[in-house]
């Protein structure tokens, strides 16, 4: 395994000092494709928020090799359609981490955004209002925005939620492609087991207060699946 980009050491996550999940110890390897799985309320979003620094851990520590730049792709429902922003405006926000207060994004940064939109095949509709785009189109713009941050780790929070089957397939193929081409570390939160089986290398499965961690081959065996789903049914 290559050097870890993120290491969780005895981490407990939760709200107001109360742990939802505890004893999380695992390492995310650089350039790996990791899927975070779990039922609703299992703590996926809490884990993601803790990793991104949106909320402090209840206990334990998160170590970063060197502080990584996160390219975050939120769920599209989290973004208010009231804002009159074009796809390009939204993608341009990815450069704001490098453009200081009181400055406008220079030509080079705008060019980078155009390149990212082209890479995600979103350049054709980037001039349209973001709120009027389809679910799949919005995800492509948001991935372009995440790429425009020049990320070390691409974090995608249920990118296929509300996206139809064909678009879901295309989107995951595309994420796999940029993972392979750019050697990006990818953290993908999803419910979709078949897609995870096809694309991810590592799995973090949050299940009834436990964290199961391993490769796809280790976790997706009939015995382990039966064990997990029996626990879930129980």
């Amino acid at each position: 395994m290559s050097e870890p980009v993120i290491t969780l050491d005895g981490l407990a996550i939760g709200y107001d000092g109360r742990a939802v999940l505890s004893g999380i110890s695992l390492a995310i390897a650089r350039s790996s494709f990791t899927a975070i799985l779990g039922a609703n309320g299992s703590g996926k979003s809490t884990l993601l928020k803790t990793l991104l620094g949106l909320q402090p851990p209840v206990a334990g520590r998160i170590h970063f090799g060197s502080p990584p730049v996160f390219g975050y792709v939120p769920q599209t429902v989290e973004l208010d359609p009231l804002f009159p922003l074009t796809g390009f405006d939204v993608a341009l926000m990815g450069t704001y981490g490098r453009v200081g207060p009181g400055r406008f994004p220079p030509h080079a940064e705008r060019q980078l955004v155009h390149d990212c939109l082209r890479a995600t095949a979103a350049d054709g509709f980037a001039h349209k209002k973001f709120s009027r785009l389809s679910g799949g189109q919005k995800q492509r713009v948001l991935i372009a925005r995440a790429l425009a941050t020049r990320p070390d780790v691409l974090v995608l929070d249920e990118p296929t939620a509300g996206v139809d089957a064909a678009a879901t397939h295309n989107l995951l193929e595309f994420i796999s492609q940029i993972h392979a081409e750019r050697k990006l570390t990818i953290l993908l939160v999803t419910h979709d087991l078949p897609l995870v089986r096809k694309h991810a290398q590592q799995i973090v499965w949050l299940h009834q207060g436990q964290v199961l961690h391993g490769t796809v081959a280790e976790l997706f065996t009939p015995e382990r699946m039966a064990e997990i789903f029996e626990m879930e049914l129980g």
Binding site: L52, L54, Y72, V90, G97, F104, R145, T149
Partner: peptide, 16 residues
């Protein structure tokens, strides 16, 4: 630019 960013997507603002 900053006022718009924190109004539209606080999470992105934190990650940046």
């Amino acid at each position: 630019k900053e006022l718009m960013l924190v109004s539209f997507d606080r999470t992105l603002a934190v990650t940046l």
